[in-house]
Design a protein around this nucleic acid. Structure first.
Lengths: 225, 225
DNA sequence: CAAATATAATAGTATTACTATCATTTATAA
DNA sequence: TTATAAATGATAGTAATACTATTATATTTG
């Protein structure tokens, strides 16, 4: 999982941005530094003005790439899920046992990203952190339905869909595969957040192995029931 | 569950507000109409100015009760969890079987609040809706740790703690009771949101009975494993 | 080298998220 | 009943946010 294909590119729905941030230097900086700034000050305090100042550019230049900070967030999370999907496909490709593949999938979601893992100047560890604490805000808005219609959440849905398919391989009669997997994915992120900030809501303190193991056990217990 | 005790009062941590909204007419309206307005336009678009206009009062008057809209949100969610806790204690009080109590607890979380259920001019159905779509924003902020230290999330933690205790009655050796219950509570809310807005992430379309049944099955499967 | 494209500089607007002051109304208690 | 306190209303003000618009200046590409 360390170095994948040298020049991999994650595809993100074009409607999310005004101008492809991958098409220019400034665009790439907006993404890579945007991640860092959101992580530092939180999405609520993050503004395009502050980002522009940090990049020594102007607010209007940033607005040429993204319509709003929520769109930037949607871009970042889509990118993240696209990357996770890529890793899922990659890491499960030669594994015949669906049970083994499910375990790998859940561990993939649960595993902490090692520090300084970079793809195209995106720091994945930091991106992983903002996905945990901010990603739900990308869909918990009054604009969900419009955004969903545009396909802004398709990367996430695809990942959940793929893991659900593995569940169905294990038990084709299990009718709650999507519910189960979306519960597990959100659950893992929540538990990590709780471990750091609201520890009495969890029993697993920053041990991604145990976290993955718990959810794998839970999944298999209900799937095979 | 229809009419409980006529004049029940849910206690909310005093530090959440500047002035007790229950102590005056205006305060009560801020809460009851605040809920309605947040539901209508979403937390992002909600402002104290808009609420003041609707109440035919002034922004500064609203600010006398709550420091910020985030505090109002914390107040509303605390109130909600306090109310859920009350109902939990009430509905499980005479049930000896912990398994039966767990089922009741999960169903309580999953059950849709019937329309027009009112306690002290708070519309619970609407409050339930905003808890689903906005409550996580109460803790997904840079101020979590400070807020947690002040005890702003204790109502939620207490509810999770109580249900976890039931889990431990069923199996005292189960070491993931908090993880399991917080996963289920958040999971139920997410699934309801998904059913309405991102249906491909769920298999249960607005059927709170099935939702409760699924999570109960899942809980028992892992607890007894 | 011209033309297109990208960025910088600057300005401007309505709204947000507050804080402050002072006048007026309403409740309470002596 | 009146004095006093408490709550609300009216008004003003400020820095920041979330944008849009315009024009000038670089930079790239054909």
């Amino acid at each position: 999982m360390k170095t994948l294909i040298g020049q991999m590119q994650i595809q993100v729905n074009e409607k999310i941005y005004l101008k492809d941030p991958n098409s220019s230097d400034l665009g790439k900086k907006i993404v890579s530094q945007g991640i860092i700034l959101i992580d530092e000050i939180g999405l609520e305090n993050f503004t395009f003005k502050k980002l522009a100042t940090r990049l020594e550019t102007t607010e209007s230049s940033v607005y040429r790439y993204f319509e709003s900070k929520n769109k930037l967030l949607i871009y970042l999370t889509s990118w993240y899920w696209g990357w996770q999907e890529y890793q899922l496909v990659f890491s499960t490709s030669n594994i015949p046992s669906p049970e083994e593949r499910l375990k790998l999938a859940i561990d993939l979601i649960a595993t902490d990203i090692p520090p300084n893992e970079i793809i195209g100047n995106v720091n994945l560890e930091i991106l992983g952190r903002i996905v945990i604490s901010e990603s739900s805000k990308a869909y918990l808005t009054k604009e969900v339905d419009a955004a969903n219609k545009e396909g802004f959440y398709s990367a996430y849905k695809r990942l959940v869909g793929r893991i659900s398919d593995i569940v169905l391989e294990i038990n084709p009669k299990f009718v709650h595969s999507h519910t189960l997997i979306s519960t597990i994915v959100e659950g893992i992120h929540h538990q990590k957040y709780f471990a750091d900030h609201l520890p009495s809501l969890t029993d697993i303190k920053s041990d991604s192995q145990k976290l993955g193991a718990f959810y794998t056990d839970m999944a298999l217990a209900i799937i095979k029931k």
